[in-house]
Design a protein around this nucleic acid. Structure first.
Length: 297
DNA sequence: CAACCTGTTCGCCA
DNA sequence: ATGGCGAACAGGTT
């Protein structure tokens, strides 16, 4: 498991439990960068498992046709979404309109990964998309098929890109937006609201619990019940966890700091990192939620 | 071996 | 019309 070149680095908490990989904000950014070594290079061949669920709603024929012969130009991520841009591709299209581009959008779902393999790489069962270049293969793997690959061909980025809320680490994610979003979902548990990608782009299950623990807010409290003081804390800790995760995890899949809640979350008998109180566990918003009953109110 | 886990979408309901 | 919620999806892991 750990150490295989085709798996991302595995994390190991100080106990025996390795916690599973769930691509959230910083992990997505880490995976996006894995394909950077292929930037500027030509795509010689495209291999894909056209009937797999990850391609739902996408024209796989057009994807294969238009990416073949194109150059990988750039990529960006937004929340848990990634966008990869390629030059027009097939010669006849380039000749017609040189500004036409091809784009693929990738969402990693729960088990998706992006990685690079040598040029003699042979795709396995779960390697649903492989972009072959002269010196390497860019690979998308997803065992559970909750991920998604979208395709777009045109002069500008597709409509489905940037359809959601602002980046948490951007100026657009301000108190006015934050307060408005909480007000709009006033009757839902705050844990559920933190998982809504239209307001908290990139926040997933572990980040949401980490944020609530730091802000000392119980996950079942409704968004509308939070005082201005509590919203201050929540806003600040949301930004802190997002920015710190990006700083620590994205470059090399680093471990979050030892005193973060996530290290306790997957243990059978996890305790609050502040005062070692046993943590509570429950299903909130359809997700396993862990919190400290002492400091989170 | 069957239940479990998980992010997003979809349909239903208030 | 809008938002909250549970089911469905898939398959490796327990």
């Amino acid at each position: 498991m750990a150490g295989s070149p085709r798996d991302p680095p595995s994390r190991q908490s100080e106990a025996t439990t390795a916690f599973s990989l769930m691509p959230e904000l910083a992990e997505v950014e880490y995976f996006r960068r894995q394909w950077d070594c292929g930037l500027g290079q030509k795509i010689l061949r495209v291999q894909l498992h056209a009937r797999k669920r990850v391609f739902r709603g996408s024209n796989t024929r057009a994807l294969g046709h238009d990416l073949t012969g194109s150059h990988f130009l750039r990529s960006e991520s937004w929340g848990k979404q990634m966008l990869f841009e390629f030059s027009g591709g097939n010669p006849e299209i380039i000749g017609a309109r040189e500004k036409i581009r091809s784009w693929i959008g990738i969402h990693l779902g729960m088990t998706g990964t992006l990685r690079v393999e040598p040029s003699d790489f042979c795709p396995e069962k779960h390697d649903h998309l492989v972009l072959r270049q002269t010196k390497r293969a860019l690979v998308f793997r997803d065992a559970r098929l909750f991920g998604r690959v979208r395709f777009h061909h045109g002069k500008s980025a597709p409509d489905w890109w940037r359809a959601g809320g602002p980046d948490i680490h951007s100026a657009a994610f301000d108190r006015a937006f934050f307060d408005g979003f909480l007000k709009r979902h006033a009757r839902a548990p705050i844990k559920s609201v933190l998982l809504l990608q239209s307001g908290f782009a990139g926040i997933g299950n572990w980040m949401a619990d980490e944020i609530l623990w730091r802000a000392k807010i119980a996950p079942l409290r409704t968004a509308g019940s939070l005082s201005s003081t509590r919203r201050d804390r929540l806003f600040r800790e949301t930004r802190f966890v997002a920015i710190e995760s990006l700083r620590i995890i994205s470059p090399a899949f680093g471990d979050p700091p030892r005193d973060w809640l996530i290290h306790q979350k997957w243990k059978r008998n996890g305790v609050c990192p502040r005062h070692r109180t046993p943590l509570c566990k429950a299903m909130i918003g359809g997700r396993t939620t862990v919190w400290c009953p002492l400091c989170q109110r």
